[in-house]
Amino acid sequence: MPRFLKILVRNLLKGPATDPFPFQEAFTPDRLRGRVVLNPDLCLGCGICRHVCPGEAIRLEPDEGRTGYSFSIWHNTCALCGSCRHFCPTGAITLNADWHGAHPQTDKYRHAEHHFVPYLRCAGCGAPLRPLPPGIAARLYAHSPLDMTQVVKLCPDCRLTATAKREGERYGTTANPG
């Protein structure tokens, strides 16, 4: 007992160990997994976040007219595991340290984040095209002499045709069979 009395006195002199929340901000480290946030400018629509989400809190689907896709994060279904952030290839999904998620029962269907990411139209054929964020395009075409600002406006089919045409022009005379 005397051994512990020493600690007891020390703790008494130190004062309360708890944070005086809500009168003062509570201890919140930067990395705290508080809420999932999407940056739609970086979203590729690849859907890996939906694939790895254990609670199926992420919905991602094209609209009826295929003008774009909607992206929803349902915070009340989210387990805050951070898998979406971990697997997101572009860093579009982050978790912020805002843990103030308490809300009245009546607001439970509003406790979500909704985005609409419009499709581009292919410059060649007009087909709906998933946007490639400029940062990703710059990374993909970093070592290519091509003008990537034009390439990213084409759908995969038109890109194939354009490449074939370009390569054909380049090798047209030398690669003549016969």
Binding site: F27, P29, R31, L32, R33, A79, L80, C81, G82, S83, L95
Partner: peptide, 12 residues
């Protein structure tokens, strides 16, 4: 745990 991993129990 909270500072490194972002949660007190489930470290992920």
């Amino acid at each position: 745990k909270e500072t490194i991993f972002g949660n007190r129990m489930d470290l992920a």
